[in-house]
């Protein structure tokens, strides 16, 4: 059964069809969330919120010229932003002694050097700005078009193109072990 058919059935309230949609997209959406959310537990909670929101939005979703994955990613982007907004408004108090080792000699560069080439490149990739990683993920791994990515992230086509260009330049540096 293709995605559009599943969406139509889920729209009619069939939870089973929505479950199948979840199976199709959960992994991809989770990866996308993890770009910005470091905490795995939080990322799982957000994934759950995204699919519940999607189900709530199904009755009013227009199915003509529907791009369901883009719509789902848009919900994901908004939910992640909402999460950061909530976190920003209600910051948690962290004890300095527990969380910060101010006098420690931790160094990202040193840590990366101690890893194998593949691992160090992955580590370097994780250090990229989340927006760069989002654009790369959406454009080249999820294969959305420029305008779809622009819609998902709420940016102009030109802005996405520029971010993509800068991100790829950074990836080149990572691959050349220059970062």
């Amino acid at each position: 059964m293709d995605i559009d058919e599943l969406v139509l059935q889920a729209k009619q309230g069939k939870a089973e069809a929505f479950g199948q949609l979840y199976d199709l997209f959960a992994q991809r959406i989770f990866k996308y969330i993890r770009i910005k959310i470091q905490d795995r537990q939080q990322a799982e909670d957000i994934l759950q919120d995204i699919f519940i929101k999607a189900y709530k939005g199904l009755p009013v979703l227009r199915t003509d010229h529907l791009n369901f994955p883009a719509w789902l990613y848009k919900i994901a982007a908004n939910t992640v932003n909402d999460h950061f907004r909530k976190t920003y408004r209600a910051p948690t108090v962290i004890g300095m002694d527990e969380e910060f080792d101010i006098a420690g000699n931790y160094s990202v560069e040193r840590e990366i050097q101690s890893l194998s080439d593949g691992e160090s490149m992955q580590k370097a990739f994780t250090q990229l700005p989340p927006l760069y990683k989002q654009v790369l993920e959406l454009r080249f791994l999820q294969e959305f078009s420029l305008s779809e990515v622009a819609k998902i992230l709420g940016k102009s086509n030109l802005a996405v193109r520029l971010i993509q260009f800068r991100a790829l330049k950074k990836v080149r540096l990572i691959l050349n072990n220059d970062l």
């Binding site: 959960a26 992994q27 989770f30 990866k31 993890r34 799982e44 994934l47 593949g118 490149m121 992955q122 990739f125 994780t126 790369l136 993920e137 454009r139 080249f140 791994l141 193109r161 520029l162 993509q164 260009f165 790829l168 330049k169 990836v171 080149r172 990572i174 691959l175």
Partner: peptide
């Protein structure tokens, strides 16, 4: 075209390897 991704074919191909596998959902 300005800011084209065409000259980054190698980087685009390497992207799947750069994303850590641990991020996948079990």
């Amino acid at each position: 075209m300005i800011f084209s991704a065409k000259k980054f074919k190698k980087e685009v191909q390497a992207l799947p390897k750069l994303i850590p596998a641990a991020d996948a959902l079990t």
